[in-house]
């Protein structure tokens, strides 16, 4: 890692927020959004594309930080869009098919060898959750049809609004997802 790159990275963080901790959060949030956007657009190497986008922005920071107006996240988005087009054009020239229109036959997507490993990790990660969170997420997903009614009833019992229940379960699920990824990583290493 060169000194110039490190300086630019520091400049990037300062551009995102004067407070270094908040800047770090914002950086992670932008990266996470980019990965999801690339992935939702059908890019199988979403993480690489997000990192390439960030690298390009880092290289540009000294030029733009002082003059750019608006939320820096939108600048990242603009660079990402440009990259998307580049990837599409590159793949068009190779296969005469736009990369984001490729169709994969995934009619039986659940039949994958990774499922059992993930299930084991899910069990492990559930056991690490606080009991109340574990109970809540399992209860939320085991609701009978129509789920919308039974979840409203669950929210009523908990004394919170149905939308707050959705958000609360989502946040528990985010933690579970991170734990499962870590667990899968350690299983791959061993």
């Amino acid at each position: 890692m060169t000194k110039r790159w490190e300086d630019n990275f520091e400049a990037l963080l300062a551009w995102l927020d004067p407070d270094r901790e908040r800047a770090g959060d914002k950086y992670e949030d932008i990266r996470h959004s980019l990965i999801n956007i690339f992935s939702w657009q059908g890019a199988s190497d979403a993480e690489d594309l997000a990192d390439e986008t960030i690298s390009r922005v880092i290289n540009k920071v000294p030029e733009i930080a002082l003059t750019y107006k608006g939320d820096p996240a939108l600048y990242f988005y603009g660079v990402a869009k440009k990259m998307q087009w580049e990837v599409m054009r590159r793949e068009q020239s190779v296969a005469a098919n736009p990369s984001f229109d490729n169709v994969t036959d995934t009619r039986e997507p659940s039949e994958t060898k990774d499922f059992e490993r993930e299930y084991e990790c899910l069990e492990q990660c559930l056991s690490k959750l606080p009991a109340s969170d574990r109970e809540l997420i399992l209860l939320y997903y085991q609701q009978e049809q129509p789920k919308i009614d039974s979840r409203k009833e669950l929210a009523r019992k908990l004394g919170i609004a149905p939308n707050n229940l959705r958000v609360r379960v989502h946040r528990i699920r985010l933690g579970l997802h991170a734990c499962i990824e870590k667990c899968l990583g350690s299983k791959t290493e061993t």
């Binding site: 992935s39 994969t104 995934t106 499922f115 899910l122 559930l126 939320y140 579970l176 499962i180």
Partner: peptide
């Protein structure tokens, strides 16, 4: 199937949904 479930990240999310459904 045609537009959403095309990338490794989405397939991983589906496996998690399946695992959670099974566990629930």
């Amino acid at each position: 199937l045609k537009n959403y479930l095309t990338t490794p990240l989405q397939k991983q999310k589906l496996r998690m949904a399946l695992a959670l459904d099974k566990r629930a």
